[in-house]
Amino acid sequence: MSFWRKHLMGESRTRDVLLVLAALVAIWELGVWYYEPPKIFLPPPSAILAEFLTTPGLFIRHMGYTLWTTLLAFAVSVALGIALAVAIVYSRLLERTIYTLLVALNSVPKVALAPLFVIWLGTGMEPKIAVAVMLALFPIVIDTVLGLRSVDPDMVNLARAARASQLQILAKIRFPNALPSLFAGMKVAISFALVGAIVGEFVAGGNGLGFLVLVAQGQFDTTRVFVSLVLLGLMGTALFYAIDFAERLMLPWHVSQRGEGGSQHGG
């Protein structure tokens, strides 16, 4: 009894989520089996799995392409985003110009620019990275600027009283203080980078899960569309939790201060 209580009735967020997912898949499978909708509308989960297993290598290869595009774009966004945020915080001119512009541009539907990047950069990986960076850069810059600014003024006064340099204040106080915000931005950015990569693949090129979705849709092969979508979902979730894991590793002081053990925060 105590074993079951611990493992089936105790508190575990991951287990709860998995149970709900399993229930949904079961309902889906049973629903399709009972109502028999046309296969072109909704294939059952078992058919989706079977479809994946016919050509697993192909799916994995295209998934690798999308993953690689996403990761490259994410890396560029983080590096560029941090540099921009630091520049914005330290320069009144840049704050008034670039930051204001960035905040204004944030509301523009940037995916609409994807065709333009194809014209400029061709049909390789570059336009996809460009679209993904366009999306992922904003949350990183905005959150990092927020984090760099949200330092207790007396913390800076303490450093200034010791005649610390601006670089010391940045390295020892402002930047570490901004890390929790940076991670919050990165959790949003990783999902945005994936969206950007897919949109890029929709617009042009012959690689990636976005391309597979488009081709399968053209052939009315709904099952293959679903295989790609499931893989995309798994990839997005894995990427988000990878950042979450890195945060726990790098900012134990922040995570423990939040005073929670589960993953109750979403991007």
């Binding site: 207790d152 007396d154 913390m155 006064n157 303490l158 200034r160 009283a161 010791a162 005649r163 020892k172 106080i173 570490p176 203080n177 890390l179 900012l251 002081w253 922040h254 201060q257």
Partner: peptide, 19 residues
């Protein structure tokens, strides 16, 4: 002229660095 040498300062908030 600027912060003097050999000075220590304590504020109402401890401003310790959490990390």
């Amino acid at each position: 002229d600027g912060p003097p040498d050999a000075m220590g300062i304590v504020f109402q908030r401890d401003v310790l660095l959490d990390w």
